[in-house]
Design a protein around this nucleic acid. Structure first.
Lengths: 323, 323
DNA sequence: TTGTACGCGTTATCAC
DNA sequence: GTGATAACGCGTACAA
């Protein structure tokens, strides 16, 4: 393992000089600086970031715990976060919790153990309060993204309730009355059914609780939907995730019906099929996220008096499935 | 920052004892062990992995550089790799190169700097030879996944040439003669056109080079495809990626034609649309990857005499688009 | 402008 | 069973 001492020796300088030269900081004459850089490159020297972080007590790194690696939108936001934070001189380190609280716990501990400067995460539950507390004590800025499980820390969520409101209102305006809402059974996430009910109430339509169905994410609900559609005879469907949307289409196909459909999350294939969607405003999400974290980081304050809860409004994109 | 010294002091033991207790290693009496664990928990103690890694010269971590965060299959493989390596006691740390050689360089350096025990990556080019060399010198097992740019290191790829062969042969068997291949312009990846040509030659069909089209990945090629289909009048299409597949469908829609289509990468919506696909055998990919890395790690040898180049055969899934 | 010396948090060695 | 101590590689007062 070739270290800074080797480089210093090879250049006939002290490690202090080598360190300063390699990090382009402090005083060091041009000749020595060039020499040191050249020798370092020749020897394939790479700093040991563990030693650096240990020394500095921080790592110039932002940790992100993503709950679902398969979620296209999470990945889109993640990509932009990586790019944006890089522009501020921060590296991003990603951990995946796979929608599991214990795995989330591992991730959280790992990030704290690595001395990250901030943590962004999509909470699965509120069972890791102790780690949240430790982070606060260490003055590490925290931010909940997409969900809000810990009231005392900042959050940025998409207002899915409003999305459901938009979808329902749109369908109501097209004279549909028996609208089925296929929602996710997920705690700490904005409530879709509230927006659905509000839109119906505004139109003086009686809410039928049977038409509000909740399912766990993860496995196909095609069979269940087939049964439900057949039995409840809805005249339109709102699918809370694009997987549910897919299942709904399959269910309708197998029943030989073709109901108007609105799907959450705007993916390419939904556009292709001409399906109306509720689109997440990716840009707003990552921009607000970066601003939230950078503000805390630059102010040196890991949090302010009151937790900030930002709700970002999704957009309705009308296509021929509901025209 | 509460460290092991604090814990030791609070327990009236030495740091050595505390360290042994916390890591459940070496000798330490039951009472002290329990006490130390309790106090550590109470104080919210978390080891500093930077100090650990610095001390140990390694991190029990495998670094993976993913070239495309949006690629669903990469993510599927990644998820499984994380789970599998965890079972072997290794943590995975992910970096994204976004199909950019310089970013890949950053990632590579970061991983080496972090003292990862092995690196798996999807090379974009062969311009980072120096970092490959450094890794070899440090005895860090390397593995190229999905592409092969450095002949001297192991690789695991999907045999896309064979996939193209399967697709072409299938279409030929259905009497199509003017099959258009929409392929990716990507170096170091198995050549799709070879398999395409082989299938045609086996059927004594003259290869028409015009029908082999290559495009960069990243942006929509719908307009180009519309023009090509209109001008070249193919009687079937093979799309080398699912984005190209999407574009092909859009192009056909705008022309009002409906040619048989085979698309690489089997995604849910392709199944929904009944489109024939070439499916990547995810399980084989991650299993072979884990085996390759773990063998090297456990044998203590970062490589063997000859580089191993594994090609995994994809599968043809026939659906109604080509029936 | 350069070098010496110490400490960051942890662990392995060795003496007790 | 337990504890003192030297390292790991690096950065930085402080001295020169």
């Amino acid at each position: 393992m070739i270290n800074i001492k080797d480089i210093a020796k090879a250049c006939n300088v002290s490690v202090a000089t080598a360190s300063r030269a390699l990090r382009n900081t402090g005083y060091v004459s041009k000749e020595k600086r060039d020499l040191i850089h050249r020798v370092a490159k020749e020897h394939g020297y790479i700093v040991d970031s563990n030693a650096q972080n240990l020394k500095n007590g921080k790592s110039n790194t932002i940790g992100i715990i993503v709950s679902d690696i398969k979620n296209f939108f999470y990945n889109m936001v993640l990509e932009n976060l990586i790019v944006e934070f890089k522009r501020f001189g921060y590296r991003v380190i990603i951990s995946y919790s796979f929608e599991n609280s214990l795995t989330e716990r591992d991730c959280f501990q790992f990030l704290l153990s690595s001395k990250v400067d901030a943590i962004i995460f999509t909470p699965i539950s509120n069972t890791n309060q102790d780690l949240v507390d430790i982070s606060q004590k260490r003055d590490i800025p925290l931010l909940q993204l997409f969900r809000s499980a810990y009231p005392e820390i900042d959050s940025i969520c998409v207002d899915d309730g409003y999305g459901a409101y938009l979808a329902t209102k749109h369908l109501v305006a097209h004279s549909y009355r028996r609208i089925m809402l296929v929602s996710v059974k997920l705690p700490f996430t904005p409530n879709r059914s509230k927006g659905y009910k509000r839109a119906l109430e505004e139109a003086d339509i009686q809410v039928n609780e049977d038409l509000i169905q909740r399912f766990e994410i993860g496995n196909s609900i095609e069979a269940k939907l087939t049964e439900l559609i057949d039995r409840l005879k809805p005249d339109a469907i709102i699918a809370g995730t694009n997987t549910f949307g897919l299942n709904a289409i399959e269910a309708m196909n197998s029943l030989g019906v073709n109901l108007p459909l609105v799907v959450f999350d705007n993916l390419d294939w939904l556009k292709l099929l001409g399906i109306t969607t509720i689109a997440q405003p990716i840009k707003q999400i990552y921009e607000q996220t970066v601003e939230n974290i950078m503000t805390k980081l630059e102010s040196g304050k890991s949090s302010f008096e009151e937790a900030v809860n930002i709700k970002i409004k999704p957009e309705l994109i009308v296509r021929r499935s509901t025209d």
